[in-house]
């Protein structure tokens, strides 16, 4: 095979693009899970964001408006989940799955007239064919990619150093105790779900406006599920989400590049590798926890329903 067909600068730049939707969806889900909510509807919220963002930018010609509406679309869909699980006390796993199925069907329905259309171009910080390798990697991207890198850092800071973050973690660790101290468990969780939906929607819009950029039915193709695995992979640590997303993104891009370069390794093995790595890392984490070398970071109330008892 021909390694010289792979240009390192292009390669790294495309890893960053490919990792961003995943990164956004995973950091949103991490915040929801930190408050004890397991939302399996990430895939549905992403694809809803993808089609909302796509339609709005095509109709208005403004990618910015598209991204905003993509985030809004995902967030509004997540409110259905919040309503079901937080107010009606429905099972989180079933509600999340329903959200994914609903999102896939709904996006396919409203996106019928948009297949094959090219969306307006998203402006980049620096453009052109004559960029240096550094410029291409560090500056040759759109604003959302940088926002995506910034969000995990902000989330990390807020969770670790602010009162808001402390309350969020407290609700996820022990909702009864948080309630006894007078914190509004339900509304804090609704807020976290909403944030998760907005991030997933933004990630979806990035997919249809930048990464592909096109609309096809079911175009998320499982990225929402990978985002869920990524939260576990990062063991609920925001900064690890970046590493994990770039690893997944890297393997995805590498696989495409290897294919283009005429690799002899069957493609199936390459596409399998991120998942194999996830399983290995999860096993490693369990072993470390068993021997007390690492504290379990999973929120204690993950997936549990809270019912105020007075």
């Amino acid at each position: 095979m021909d390694w010289s067909a792979i240009n390192p600068a292009f390669f790294i730049a495309s890893i960053m693009v490919s990792a961003t939707p995943l990164l956004l969806a995973a950091i949103g889900e991490l915040v929801a899970e930190k408050t004890g909510v397991l939302n399996l509807g990430v895939e549905g919220m992403m694809i809803t964001g993808a089609i909302c963002g796509f339609i709005i930018s095509v109709e208005t010609g403004s990618p910015t408006l598209g991204f905003i509406c993509g985030a809004l679309g995902g967030a509004v869909l997540s409110l259905i989940f919040a309503l079901l699980t937080q107010l009606f006390m429905a099972n989180q796993v079933a509600s999340g799955l329903a959200l994914t199925l609903f999102g896939l069907g709904f996006s396919s329905m409203i996106g019928q007239g948009y297949v094959g259309i090219v969306p307006p171009d998203v402006p980049k910080l620096m453009e052109g064919a004559d960029l240096s390798a550094f410029q291409r990697i560090a500056l040759g991207h759109d604003a959302v990619l940088y926002i995506g890198l910034l969000i995990p850092v902000i989330v990390w800071y807020v969770l670790k150093y602010t009162r808001l973050g402390l309350v969020l973690r407290a609700v996820g660790e022990d909702h009864e105790a948080a309630h006894a101290l007078g914190y509004k468990v339900i509304w804090i969780r609704v807020g976290a779900i909403f944030f998760g939906g907005a991030c997933a929607g933004l990630g979806g819009a990035y997919l249809s406006l930048v990464r592909v950029p096109q609309w096809t039915d079911g175009m998320t193709a499982g990225i929402g599920w990978i985002a869920l695995a990524l939260v576990v992979f990062a063991s609920w640590r925001p900064l690890f989400i970046i590493i994990g997303a770039y690893l997944f993104g890297g393997v995805t891009v590498l696989q495409l590049n290897l294919q283009a370069a005429g690799s002899t390794i069957p493609v199936e093995y390459l596409s399998m590798s991120p998942y194999v790595i996830t399983i290995l890392v999860l096993v490693l984490l369990s072993v470390l926890q068993k021997y007390g070398l690492l504290r379990a970071a999973a929120p204690a109330m993950l997936g549990r329903l809270f019912h105020a008892s007075n």
Binding site: R163, L166, V167, R169, A170, E173, D174, E176, A177, A178, A180, L181, Y183, R295, A300
Partner: peptide, 20 residues
């Protein structure tokens, strides 16, 4: 002071106190 402690096991003493 509650009968069943309203403490968060995964947080530090200072964080627990700040929450209250």
């Amino acid at each position: 002071v509650f009968q069943h402690f309203s403490l968060f096991a995964a947080l530090t003493v200072a964080e627990n106190i700040a929450l209250g």
